[in-house]
């Protein structure tokens, strides 16, 4: 099972094991990681699970799809080239060790 490390806006680091196919958002929310709101539960409808993907992983994670791209434009925190909505990143083995920083504002 691949690991994900989350850096919360207050600097707290949390490492969790993900089930293959789970999204980076789901794993965080289910374990109460601070800073990911995910109001819509993963339907790409709210832009409240905004993360910055660590540069070592941006290629493997890939870019946002069309809808996600639009939603990111409306996200509360600044959009950066490595911005993603974490509900749209599904975990697979090659993402083991993934590091994401949670955006400072979600709402």
């Amino acid at each position: 099972m691949p690991d994900i490390t989350y850096i919360s806006p207050d600097g707290t680091s949390t490492t969790l094991e993900a089930r293959l196919g789970d999204s980076v958002m789901e794993v965080a929310v289910k374990h109460g990681v601070e800073g990911i709101v995910a109001e819509c539960g993963g339907a790409c409808s709210c832009a409240t699970c905004h993360v910055y993907v660590d540069e070592a992983f941006t290629d493997r994670v890939g870019g946002a799809g069309d809808l996600e791209d639009d939603m990111l434009d409306g996200a509360a925190a600044e959009r950066l080239p490595n911005s993603r909505l974490s509900c749209q990143i599904k975990m697979r083995d090659e993402l083991d060790g993934l590091l994401v920083r949670i955006a400072p504002e979600q709402l």
Binding site: R19, D22, E26, V29, K30, H31, G32, G41
Partner: peptide
């Protein structure tokens, strides 16, 4: 398991 709002341990 996908539908769970929180893990049981939470």
């Amino acid at each position: 398991e996908t539908l769970e709002l929180r893990a049981p341990s939470f």
